[in-house]
Design a protein around this nucleic acid. Structure first.
Lengths: 216, 216
DNA sequence: TCCCGATGTATCGGCCCGATACATCGCAAC
DNA sequence: GTTGCGATGTATCGGGCCGATACATCGGGA
């Protein structure tokens, strides 16, 4: 899963490890707080060995607001890496539907075609529904066997599952009907001009969504 | 974390691996769907080596509705194991406040003294609050840099974090004020007589709570 | 000047997972 | 009556990811 995330970020711009970790943290803030270096560096090595990314020492010319010129290593995605990224994005296995896997895939939905988005959304929904049913069963059938705290934990979990199913339902509806705006409450609707000119119409990058957000 | 859960379940009654896995799944259904055997058996071996549990071949006399008489191995907690369990329950490190750690601790709150419960609840609240603040920052400051899907993911995460903080707040309030009933909606209030007579007043086992459950 | 915090790269032991391989039992279909 | 399948049951292996740790450089404030 981390492989997909790294490839996705490096597709936007080359980076060194430290930067990558930060971007990962903000992009996947909901999924995992911050990726460990004990994970990041071995993974980078692995990707390099596989030929998906290349390593290049930082030359004098340094665009970002970075300092120093020591042993910084900048990673860059290769053509094979882009292919690999596209493959990983499109193919959805069982691990695509657990919390972490779904989160990473979702974070790159703007680079995913609509059919795949729907497939993943529906797979995730099924997964969460199963979990929800399991919790309902426990709460109705096994309630007497469990102490009050354990029951409260299940209730909270059930609530979260129900909520996520509703969220997914809306996202699916929006995907099917071409998309829907209704930004968060009375907030702005992205009036600023987006700077991106990195990737134009390379592969599959449809339109942005905008589910909803009830309650002010 | 798994160590704590196993010790906790074996404290109630001896079990074999398969059973343990099932109980784990229902008790911690919110946290992890089902523990892998690739985790369970090595962990059991580890606990055995440490002396917290002992292994005993299943004799002819088999109380549960189980069948067969093959190589089933029943695990039983030792006196040292009970001590270890009490230690793990009381001491709260940083890993106590992440999703998995908190869930396991919470599931055994009925065996935890009130001071520790409050400490853990407050530690978890702080943790989730930090996460919430991080997400708010991203959503206000870095909104323009992120695509619509990533933003939606953050919004959903923020919503979940806010909700959990409110939940924790209520639990904390209830703990402080001696406890509060108000069971889930119009449901029963445990009219059946509880069967437990395993552990009487051994260590710290206060009263049960009963937070709330708004909206139906 | 001296040290401290941010930046930056890297390894190690350990937990946990999914895949896989076996073996036994009860039962239903053929 | 046997064949085969699904539930029960124990166990290992490779690999991903984590936290702790170590080390090095740089800018700036005490």
């Amino acid at each position: 899963m981390l492989e997909l995330a790294i490839l996705g970020l490096l597709q936007e711009t080359p980076m060194h490890g430290y930067e990558l970790r930060k971007e990962l943290a903000t992009k996947l803030g909901t999924i995992r707080a911050a990726i460990s270096y004990g994970t990041l560096y071995p993974t980078l090595k692995r990707l390099q060995t596989a030929g998906w990314i290349t390593e290049s020492a930082s030359d004098p010319t340094m665009i970002p607001p970075m300092t120093s010129k020591r042993g910084r290593v900048v990673y860059k995605i290769t053509a094979d890496g882009k292919e690999r990224f596209a493959d990983l994005l499109a193919q959805a296995g069982p691990e695509t539907y657990d919390d972490a896997g779904f989160g990473v895939h979702f974070a790159f939905f703007s680079r995913t075609d609509r059919a795949t988005r729907l497939r993943i959304l529906e797979g995730r929904r099924r997964r969460v529904e199963e979990r929800r049913e399991g919790l309902r069963d426990v709460l109705s059938r096994a309630a007497g066997r469990l102490d009050a705290y354990t029951l409260e934990l299940q209730r909270h979990g059930l609530d979260a599952a129900e909520r996520e199913v509703r969220w997914l339902e809306e996202l699916i509806t929006n995907e099917r009907s071409g998309r829907a705006p209704a930004g968060s409450a009375g907030e702005i609707d992205i009036p600023v001009a987006e700077p991106p000119q990195e990737r134009a119409a390379e592969d599959a990058s449809p339109e942005p969504p905008r589910p909803h957000k009830d309650r002010p």
